[in-house]
């Protein structure tokens, strides 16, 4: 058993972190938040060229020929950088929608009652008819609401269970956010001085940070293992833990930042809001819990 990153996986993660650090740094993040609804098509194509969308397509079809563990690593990095855009939707469409694999085509996806990035998308997976724009809580994720199933001559199909790969990739993004939230909190706690010392010297602050790490690392083990096994129960478990790590982690990160965390200028709220958006995606926590409860009965 060697449940650790291989050298190739470490390199893939480092490469993606380098690309995102170069092309989507803190200044780019703030610029994006100031111009809501616009997607950087140049960056999208660069991601395509780096294999972000074609990662799991066979090499014979022009893909990279890698698997879910590698996909999870690059999605974690995207989550960590707070990269905007319908990343999972386009990745999932790479085999079917021309141009998705290379980043030429941006693909949105109807998910439950919501669609992210509908106006900016070139293609849509699912039936988005009648969609109306929502004033999105997350300035970096434009949202449309899709009317629910209605009886009639042409009923909209009731959505089935969420695609497990979509669930797992969402969990991977949440893991990246949980990790980033912990880093931001620790950075702030080390440098912010009150009562003559860094606030990170106070146990009350220290313990918030420690719990953020515990949640993130537990989620990491679950997400990576689910990527290796692809087992539905492992994926459901990974999702529950990653959602918790991201949503509670960003909340605690805000708390550690104090008043600064409540400002628009700080990036903390952007991580929290994205964690909320992702928590609505690809099936609910309740569905995951029910599935894992049923699994106990065998």
């Amino acid at each position: 058993m060697r449940f650790r990153l291989t050298g190739d996986q470490e390199a893939l993660r480092a490469g993606m972190r380098e690309l995102l650090g170069r092309r989507f740094d803190g200044a780019a993040l703030r610029a994006a938040a100031g111009a809501p609804g616009r997607l950087d098509r140049g960056l999208w194509r660069e991601l395509g060229a780096a294999g972000f969308f074609a990662l799991r397509l066979p090499e014979a079809d022009g893909g990279v020929g890698l698997g879910l563990p590698e996909a999870v690593l690059v999605f974690e990095e995207a989550g960590r950088a707070l990269l905007p855009g319908p990343l999972a939707a386009t990745h999932l469409a790479a085999a079917d929608v021309p141009g998705a694999a290379t980043g030429e085509t941006v693909v949105a996806r109807v998910d439950g009652g919501l669609v992210e990035w509908l106006a900016e998308a070139d293609e849509v997976t699912g039936d988005a008819s009648g969609a109306v724009p929502v004033r999105s809580v997350d300035p970096l994720t434009p949202l449309h609401r899709v009317p629910g199933p209605v009886p009639g001559p042409a009923p909209r199909p009731v959505p089935g269970p969420a695609d497990p790969v979509a669930v797992l990739l969402t969990a991977a993004e949440q893991l990246g956010t949980a990790t980033r939230a912990c880093e931001l909190a620790v950075q702030h706690a080390r440098t912010r001085v009150q009562f003559g010392q860094p606030i990170g010297a106070f146990q009350a602050v220290k313990h918030l940070c420690a719990e953020m790490l515990v949640r993130a690392e537990t989620a990491r083990a679950a997400v990576y293992a689910a990527a290796v096994t692809s087992a539905p129960a492992d994926i459901a478990a990974a999702r529950l833990l990653a959602d918790e790590a991201a949503v509670r982690g960003t909340r605690d990160c805000l708390q550690v930042h104090g008043g600064m965390g409540f400002t628009w200028e700080s990036e903390v709220h952007l991580h929290l809001k994205r964690a909320w958006v992702r928590a609505q995606r690809a099936g609910s926590n309740a569905e995951g819990e029910e599935m894992l409860a049923a699994e106990l009965l065998g």
Partner: peptide
């Protein structure tokens, strides 16, 4: 759901 979440917990 509480038992389902514990399943996730101990798997992790």
């Amino acid at each position: 759901r509480r038992l389902g979440r514990l399943n996730a917990e101990f798997r992790a």
